[in-house]
Design a protein around this nucleic acid. Structure first.
Lengths: 228, 228
DNA sequence: CGGCAAATTGAGGTAGATCAATGTCGGTGG
DNA sequence: CCACCGACATTGATCTACCTCAATTTGCCG
């Protein structure tokens, strides 16, 4: 079970992760911020687009997908959030969530009331700039997602996705998701994703580790990065 | 010339537009903010991805495209900015621009030094929340762009695009762009865009106004909005 | 008038979708 | 323990929406 999680979700190496700005969870608690830290199972809906929003969720480890369900029922994964990202950051600027958010792995989340953040940021200029950083991170993430994962031929999209999913501790290892989810991220059908992955294995760029098709080892990162 | 501009760019109806937060240009000037207001011609590059960034540009009217040029040279329009949006907002959080920004019409821009904003926001809590609102607007814009304009069949994308480009004063009128730019926004080839537009005209959903194919009148908005 | 840039339209090719069959894993209950 | 079942990945065959290549048209401008 453990090795199914991306390494970025490893919570043993950093006992006190910086949750928001430079603040750790315990520092926030010292400042009277009522934190609700919880471990969520995979596949749990954290918030719903349009729903009233009064808190944000800081991710300390795990992966969360932001999903848009279009009028005709098709689901599109708008982007992924991981450790250091904030789920529902839009709650800071308006009173509802813009996207559905669903855990894709087990995930450890710190729920923080928006009111507490507003109160605190008046006193703490550092928090201000820290939050600005989170906004920027989210915006750049959205733009990158579009440019890298939703442009060009299917093969290139899948290769970009693999590179993006490398473990931070061991960049030769990658943890992927279900073919259907991967398709929803890149605007492809699950069969196409499967075929492209098989082609990469056949050509020796990656090697499959587990039986489920979630764990791969990168054998030729140069070719993976080649834009040909 | 005048009628080629989207109505949202009309600057005669609001003499003192709110530039940032609730502030008008003259109010900002009263606060010693050194503003550089300028009218830019169409097709001018405002900033370059990776370039050192020390100011933002508030749009009072006109349209600006954010462009990513991928490694293989293909250009992708990541989203559009219009009146009320801020070009290069990322300069508030880091020291460089993330995207190229190019005017798509004549555009009136207020260049504002980031240092001035930082200094001012310490004194003005309203500006804080106003900037947060801009961040949110940008992030939601990015997510919407992906979900509406880069998902589903070509016809649906083009129809969404038309609806998005309706004039604010007269929602039955639409101003489009070159077929190539439209393609770069929706991940389609220019011929495909042209064909889809022709089909909409043929089926009586829209009517062409000018000779260049930039101005259209919407005849059947119900069918345009239908997701079939 | 001539040349250029942009849109339209047609014919044909192809990447990816669709439909469908098979295989593998993991859980469940006899 | 083993048979069965459901979820998921893979693979093949075919189809089609969109791309590519190319010709034609239109308006603009020197």
């Amino acid at each position: 079970m453990r090795q199914l999680l991306p390494v970025s979700q490893d919570h043993t190496d950093r006992v006190q992760p910086r949750v928001l700005a430079q603040l750790t969870a315990s520092e926030l608690r010292q400042m009277q911020v009522p934190l609700d830290e919880r471990l969520w199972p995979s596949g749990r809906m954290l918030c719903i687009a349009g729903e009233r929003a009064s808190s944000v969720f800081a991710i300390t480890w795990g992966t969360v997908k932001l999903v848009r369900t279009s009028a005709d029922g098709r689901q599109r994964i708008v982007r992924l959030l991981q450790a250091g990202d904030v789920v529902g950051i839009e709650a800071l600027a308006c009173d509802h969530y813009d996207n559905d958010a669903i855990t894709m792995t087990e995930a450890n989340l710190l729920r923080i009331p928006v009111s507490a953040l507003h109160a605190l940021s008046a006193r703490l200029p550092d928090l201000q700039s820290g939050l600005m950083h989170k906004w920027h991170q989210a915006l750049k993430g959205a733009d990158d997602w579009l440019a890298e994962l939703n442009a060009g031929p299917a093969g290139a999209r899948v290769r970009h996705f693999i590179l993006r999913m490398r473990h931070t501790t061991d960049p030769s290892m990658v943890t992927l998701f279900s073919r259907e989810d991967m398709g929803a991220m890149m605007g492809l059908k699950l069969e196409t994703v499967s075929r492209e992955l098989s082609a990469l294995v056949r050509d020796g760029l990656i090697e499959r580790i587990d039986r489920l098709g979630r764990q791969y080892r990168i054998l030729d990162s140069a070719k993976l990065m080649a834009n040909a």
